[in-house]
Amino acid sequence: MTGGPGAVLVLGEALVDLVPVAGDGGVRAAQFGGAPANVAVGLATLGTPVSFAGGLGGDGFARTIEERLRAAGVTTTLCARSGLPTALAVAEPGEGGTDYHFHLQDTATFELPDLSARAGAFGAVYVGGLAAVVEPAASAVRATAAAAAEHSLLFVDPNVRRDRTLGADDGAAALRELCRLAQVVKASDEDLERLWPGAGPEETCRSLAAGGRLVILTRGARGSTAYTATAPPVSVAATPVDVVNTIGAGDAFAAGLLSRMGAHGAFTAEPEPAEVRDMLAYAAETAASVCAKAGTEPSAPAGVREGRRAPAL
């Protein structure tokens, strides 16, 4: 049976990242990607029951994506399927993080199912990223998110992307709407600066938290802070690690956070301060496990090598 109070529904994109190969000039390797898909794999790896609902096409990339999801233990029965190709994201890593150029139009990736009737069957529902702003997926995300906010726990990670293929104004409005619907928001300082320009990230977090939300602010090497309506902010340092890769670190943080929330017995937007600190520390170690190696699949936290702190969440 799909779902249950301890299970998570992840709704969004699974696509292919084209990532530069070190030492090979312009050669790029095809890598499993899409923030929601990374979160689904991370949750399964950490032992949390998870169903992924994305759009899977009819090409070899789609078959590879589904094999990767299933191998990790992710349930894929809620995915929509078509004969269209898989979306591509060309990764451009830099000192300040990774930018992307997207090839999204006429792909299966954004033909998402509307699961508003199924949202209440899960303990938590995760949405965010490209699927929240690219139609026709965005309409399905909005409908499912609204149902999750009413019948389950809605976890939103806006994961703002900048690219000429995206409508920045409409996309920002859609992501702000999802954040206001959510019971839990996990966002980077850059996400919040792009969505609420003119306001500091801390100010935005306090404003969102005042509405009864649990808001998690990530700052890469400077760690993370949780805001609630009733308690002082709780901060945890980033886990020290020798950085090999930063792609997928923020997704691993989200997976670690959600997994730990479920492990405390219930998905709730009102955890105790000690639980909040534990969740942030667990999520930081999960993110660090991705930074310490190539690829985007995290390891269950069990201590990481000491070194410089992970720069990207």
Rank of each mutant, 00 (worst) to 15 (best):
residue 286 T to E: 00
residue 95 E to Q: 09
residue 1 M to G: 12
residue 274 A to N: 05
residue 94 G to A: 08
residue 249 A to E: 00
residue 261 M to G: 06
residue 304 V to G: 07
residue 229 A to E: 01
residue 173 A to G: 12
residue 261 M to C: 13
residue 242 D to F: 10
residue 19 V to P: 13
residue 193 E to P: 15
residue 232 P to G: 05
residue 197 P to K: 02
residue 54 G to R: 06
residue 195 L to I: 07
residue 293 K to C: 13
residue 50 V to T: 14
residue 221 A to S: 09
residue 19 V to N: 03
residue 280 L to I: 10
residue 186 K to W: 04
residue 307 G to T: 01
residue 266 A to C: 08
residue 76 T to Q: 01
residue 159 N to D: 01
residue 19 V to L: 07
residue 59 D to A: 01
residue 308 R to K: 15
residue 227 Y to W: 10
residue 285 E to A: 15
residue 143 A to G: 10
residue 209 A to P: 14
residue 226 A to V: 11
residue 71 A to Q: 07
residue 203 E to C: 09
residue 241 V to K: 07
residue 167 G to P: 14
residue 292 A to V: 13
residue 135 E to Y: 08
residue 63 R to Q: 09
residue 23 G to M: 10
residue 289 S to Q: 05
residue 284 A to R: 06
residue 138 A to P: 15
residue 210 A to N: 03
residue 45 T to V: 15
residue 33 G to I: 01
residue 268 T to F: 10
residue 305 R to Y: 07
residue 177 E to H: 14
residue 17 D to I: 10
residue 239 T to K: 11
residue 34 G to W: 01
residue 25 G to L: 12
residue 271 P to Q: 00
residue 170 D to P: 15
residue 50 V to G: 10
residue 53 A to V: 04
residue 154 L to H: 02
residue 238 A to G: 06
residue 24 D to I: 14
residue 298 P to F: 00
residue 24 D to L: 15
residue 85 P to R: 06
residue 4 G to S: 04
residue 289 S to P: 09
residue 54 G to L: 05
residue 35 A to E: 01
residue 225 T to G: 05
residue 40 A to W: 02
residue 219 R to W: 02
residue 132 A to V: 11
residue 282 Y to T: 14
residue 260 R to T: 10
residue 174 A to D: 02
residue 242 D to L: 14
